[in-house]
């Protein structure tokens, strides 16, 4: 997904060149896309084994 991060960076640069009133609309998208590899990793994880309580000695 390195292509996606590069794409997000390019979008960031492109938007930064525009007048500031575009920033609040476009910046959240660029940020989301830059973080999307992490999001993709996170949503693909198997559910936490938290529900499986370790057997206690008691």
């Amino acid at each position: 997904m390195s292509g996606t991060v590069a794409l997000a960076a390019a979008v960031g640069v492109l938007v930064a060149l525009r007048p500031p009133e575009v920033w609040p609309i476009a910046a959240p998208f660029a940020l989301l896309w830059a973080l999307s590899p992490m999001v993709a990793y996170w949503i693909s994880l198997p559910p936490r084994a938290a529900a499986a309580q370790p057997l206690s000695a008691g």
Partner: peptide, 10 residues
């Protein structure tokens, strides 16, 4: 879907 849009487009 919005978050993954850039990746899907790519």
């Amino acid at each position: 879907t919005v978050t993954l849009l850039a990746d899907q487009a790519w």
